[in-house]
Design a protein around this nucleic acid. Structure first.
Lengths: 149, 149
DNA sequence: TAAAGTGTAATGTCAATGGTTACAAAACAT
DNA sequence: ATGTTTTGTAACCATTGACATTACACTTTA
């Protein structure tokens, strides 16, 4: 299976907040326009990001999103964890009931667990290296370049 | 989301074939017993592995599974690719229609694509390093150790 | 107090995963 | 040839997660 679009949407949200906060009130409706998904979907993601302590959301007129951590301290991994509701944080879904009376069945878990977590770790390390700051830098650069044409 | 249990089941299958081929006819029913899933589910996975050219399956009495490549040439990645039907092979599901009239919306794809594929590559490299041979070695060792107690 | 926004419940659709039954087709042993 | 074993597959079903959508209560501020 794929990592859900909530992940890329979340990054999109951070980018919009940063790019537009000076000139617009960045609400779930506003974001909905840029991202092209229903505002409620956005709000659900905002809540997950709030629960993870990455942002704060205010209601009412002039309300909106405040990022709670320095952008270069928010990694892809933080967002992934906030937004992806994976069972126990396990990337791999192990088949549940191997037969304990079979020598392979009763050992397969012990044999594989380490290997699988190596793979998961490789992915997570790579995610930790990337931050929102990188994305925003690169986005701003592209937007500037567009203007010059 | 998680990588489906088909992946760990496939590895379980290879291990059983290797461990039991001398003494048993390793059929989908036999495997069903060790893995504890329905034989049809096993057969579906066997077909995916066949399509990937990793094994051959024979029908009828005495039929069963033949592994078509050296065990140390079958990596976790090969199995992952065979068994996990991911859209385009993309690990991340990008939200489909960012608004092209928004500066962020029309650039987000270009900005993120490279980063996401870095992450996916990290995971895949790590998967390529692990082979069925490793698993079987480790499984046989454990089974031996069990006998000595 | 009205307007602007978020929080959240309820509902619906869609796709993927897995389970299960059933049976045809193949391969082999006798 | 015939029966037996085993795979290939179709046809269901249930469950789950993802997203979309409507609706409305609750907050906050002007």
């Amino acid at each position: 299976m794929q990592i859900s679009s909530r992940f890329t949407i979340a990054i999109h949200i951070f980018t919009c907040v940063e790019v537009f906060k000076e000139n617009y009130s960045v609400t779930s409706d506003f974001l909905s326009g840029s991202i092209n998904v229903n505002p409620v979907v956005i709000r659900r993601i905002l809540q997950q990001l709030t629960s993870a302590g990455l942002i704060e959301v205010k209601r009412g007129k002039g309300g909106g999103i405040t990022v709670k951590k320095p952008l270069d301290k928010i990694s892809f991994y933080d967002i992934y964890k906030a937004v992806e509701c994976v069972d126990n944080g396990e990337l791999f879904h192990f088949h549940d009931n191997p037969n304990p009376e079979c020598p392979v069945g009763r050992n397969i878990h012990a044999v594989l667990d380490g290997e699988l977590s190596d793979i998961q770790t490789a992915m997570e390390i790579s995610m930790r290296k990337k931050t929102i700051a990188d994305v925003i830098k690169s986005a701003k650069k592209r937007i500037e370049e567009e203007k010059q044409k």
